[in-house]
Amino acid sequence: MTVFTGPARVLEALATPHGLDRYLELIHPMLTVRELRAVVTGVEHTTTDSVTLTLRPNRRWRGFAAGQFVQVAVEIDGVLWTRCYSPSSSAHRSDGQFQITVRAHEDGVVSRHLHAHARPGLVLRLTAPSGEFALPSTRPDRIVLISGGSGITPVLSMLRTLTDERHPGEIVFLHYARSEADVAHLADLRAIAEANRNVRLVLAYTRSEGGDLRGHFDETHLSEIAPWYAHDSQTFVCGPPALMSAVREHFAAKGIEDALHTEEFVLAPAAPVDGDATGTVSFGATTVENSGATLLEQAESAGLSPEFGCRMGICFSCTKVKTSGCTRNVRTGDLHTEPDQEIQLCISVPVGDVAIDL
């Protein structure tokens, strides 16, 4: 439910400082002028540790490209938490709804909450879809989709989108899981493969028997299931770091990196708390001793509440301007020394004195 009226901007100004949406949501949480919202219409536990939510977005929603992700925000005990999830449904779903599949991680505040408590009627806040991991507008004739664990969601969306488009080319879907019980959407995957003669479903189990393949990724897996993968085809892969690294190394060794497209949703490596960290960090009027932790963690430890989303370096919600000093990106090791430079707080650590414009 969305309000579109000519005087909306005037009402927004009158509603300052909270904004018109803050008042409209008191009437109904899906009643907004500017914000994207979605209501949960279906909840399905596809494995013991994952849940699939069907979401009906409001009229601000403009759809997504298969493979992209959205930021999903949910209020937990009075605190708004935001995480990134890829739609797992087809981009062409006829009812305007879409699905996300969430795996409950042991230390995942949002994933555990949604797994345990999501019910129809729950309203979530969204951002517009983003991300470059997506099918090209001209679909390749031959496609390999590789996933592992919860990385299945964006490539499953690609598979569903391609079959909805009646894509005539050859598609191989290779998924790695510990066992059959850990494969989300298994029934749907088998149904898609059965209904589409050009789709080959390959399941690789790393800790049990019964799959089409056994063990972790190996170059022989691709040679066996898609012998044409190195010629006139495109490969899309999303999964845990070990899988991603193995596939990247193999494609690099064969000199076909341009045929590989990757996406990974893993937490940025924890910044080592350097016992020799020096200097101070200034967040506007607040100055703290440099602990060696990320700038986001140091700001929160100082009692500040900067905006953040994924805490992975993906969504850029925590981007702020570093007015002076040097920072290091914990994912890449790159140093940023220029003044008035935008950095991501969640994956940046200070090197000596640093000033941030919050």
Rank of each mutant, 00 (worst) to 15 (best):
residue 146 I to S: 01
residue 123 V to D: 07
residue 236 F to R: 05
residue 162 L to W: 00
residue 171 I to Q: 02
residue 80 L to A: 08
residue 201 L to V: 05
residue 303 G to K: 05
residue 200 R to I: 07
residue 172 V to E: 12
residue 20 L to Q: 04
residue 125 R to I: 07
residue 228 W to E: 08
residue 355 A to R: 14
residue 265 F to P: 12
residue 173 F to E: 00
residue 334 D to V: 11
residue 354 V to Q: 11
residue 96 G to L: 11
residue 139 R to D: 04
residue 211 G to Q: 12
residue 53 L to M: 11
residue 288 V to S: 14
residue 145 L to Q: 04
residue 108 G to E: 03
residue 331 R to V: 09
residue 197 R to F: 14
residue 239 G to M: 08
residue 12 E to V: 02
residue 286 T to S: 01
residue 144 V to H: 04
residue 299 A to R: 13
residue 60 R to Y: 09
residue 233 S to W: 02
residue 71 Q to V: 15
residue 302 A to R: 08
residue 29 P to G: 03
residue 216 H to T: 12
residue 2 T to N: 11
residue 319 T to Y: 01
residue 340 D to T: 10
residue 344 Q to L: 08
residue 57 P to K: 01
residue 187 A to S: 01
residue 294 T to A: 10
residue 44 E to A: 15
residue 206 T to G: 13
residue 344 Q to V: 00
residue 203 L to A: 05
residue 291 S to P: 05
residue 353 D to A: 11
residue 355 A to K: 05
residue 118 A to R: 04
residue 311 R to L: 09
residue 143 I to K: 04
residue 347 I to G: 06
residue 180 E to C: 00
residue 356 I to W: 00
residue 58 N to K: 10
residue 225 I to F: 08
residue 142 R to C: 02
residue 357 D to K: 14
residue 30 M to E: 14
residue 165 E to P: 13
residue 48 T to V: 15
residue 287 T to C: 14
residue 181 A to E: 03
residue 221 H to P: 05
residue 147 S to P: 08
residue 59 R to F: 09
residue 304 L to N: 10
residue 130 S to K: 15
residue 295 L to C: 00
residue 28 H to M: 06
residue 262 T to K: 04
residue 36 L to N: 01
residue 26 L to D: 12
residue 206 T to M: 02
residue 74 V to Q: 13
residue 275 G to N: 06
residue 17 P to W: 06
residue 266 V to Q: 09
residue 156 L to E: 09
residue 265 F to N: 07
residue 71 Q to A: 11
residue 325 G to M: 08
residue 311 R to F: 10
residue 100 I to S: 04
residue 133 F to C: 06
residue 281 V to H: 00
residue 333 G to M: 01
residue 303 G to I: 02
residue 178 R to K: 07
residue 27 I to F: 07
residue 112 R to G: 00
residue 184 A to W: 03
residue 50 S to D: 10
residue 144 V to P: 01
residue 92 H to T: 06
